[in-house]
């Protein structure tokens, strides 16, 4: 047997070089955060800057200070509750609506779906003031439901799940009807389990989006007790903050860890999900 080796073309080399360059540019800020956190204060930004961490204990101490001497831990909890409730809501409402839109015919289905898709094209900045006013009139400012409810109806999530559920064969739905399953039982026992992959992907994408959401929590909750991680990190970064650069970096790093971990664990599902829905979150 002969092994055929092909020499890489210039084009291939260029492609790889470009990919590595982009990866470096993307990774450098994260690496810089790690570098600043796990070094003695001021060391990486001194006259002889270092690109690698020098003190694990200094980093641990900074994390301890952040967790024990600031409101960071509570903000973590708030963010987590906010993300979990939003995920639960988006999955529930998205899958129920997608079930109807994709598998059943009803008057106005096309128009309604068209309107929902159109809402994907409206920038958040346009809807944020009316949403705020509505939330305010409902008396939901500075409440968890004020934070969560406006984000429950996700047009993107609906679109993604509709694409998935369209692939469920009609025969299967009819077989379940003949087996005596009610409308809700068909959704629960047939459609939902068949879309498990899409649901997992949507949950991950919703988590990433909710965790990183800065604007809505900032607007709806002015009470520090309801601050999310994003807002607390914002306080650390604010011009009048008395925190040193390394403490700010620690706060930033801690905020970035959950989505980073999520991404590393579910990387394949996220890429699949984005590819399948034909759009980006």
């Amino acid at each position: 047997m002969t092994v055929v080796t092909t020499r890489p073309t210039i084009w291939t080399v260029l492609k790889w070089a470009l990919a590595i360059l982009i990866a470096l540019i993307a990774l450098f800020p994260i690496w810089w955060m790690v570098n600043v956190v796990f070094s003695m204060p001021g060391e990486p930004v001194s006259l002889n800057p270092r690109l690698w961490p020098t003190s694990l204990s200094a980093g641990i101490e900074k994390i301890r200070v952040i967790f024990t001497e600031t409101e960071y831990l509570r903000a973590y909890g708030i963010s987590l509750i906010y993300a979990v409730l939003t995920i639960a809501g988006v999955l529930t409402f998205g899958s129920l609506a997608a079930f109807e839109f994709s598998l059943f015919d009803f008057p106005g289905r096309r128009i309604l779906f068209g309107i929902i898709l159109l809402s994907l094209m409206v920038p958040t900045a346009v809807t944020i003031i009316p949403t705020y006013l509505l939330t305010s009139q409902l008396g939901w400012l500075n409440t968890m439901h004020g934070l969560v409810v406006p984000g429950l109806a996700s047009a993107f999530g609906l679109f993604m799940l509709v694409q998935f559920m369209r692939a469920v064969p009609k025969d299967m739905i009819e077989a379940a009807r003949l087996d005596g399953a009610s409308h809700f039982q068909i959704y629960w026992h047939i459609a939902l389990p068949l879309c498990r992959n899409a649901m997992v992907t949507l949950a991950i994408l919703t988590f990433m989006q909710t965790w990183g959401n800065y604007m809505w929590p900032l607007i709806v909750s002015s009470k520090p007790q309801l601050y999310t991680v994003g807002q607390v990190v914002g306080l650390f970064n604010s011009p009048l903050s008395h925190q040193t650069v390394d403490m700010v970096m620690t706060a930033n790093l801690l905020a970035a860890i959950p989505p980073l971990l999520f991404f590393l664990i579910f990387q394949r599902k996220i890429v699949e999900g984005v590819a399948m829905s034909g759009t980006k979150g």
Binding site: D171, M172, E174, A175, R177, L178, D179, I190
Partner: peptide, 19 residues
């Protein structure tokens, strides 16, 4: 309703629940 008619159907595609 279909389920109350006392009929059962076998589909061309079998329509088995894959999960």
């Amino acid at each position: 309703e279909p389920a109350a008619r006392g009929t059962a159907m076998v589909f061309q595609s079998y329509a088995l629940y894959p999960h």
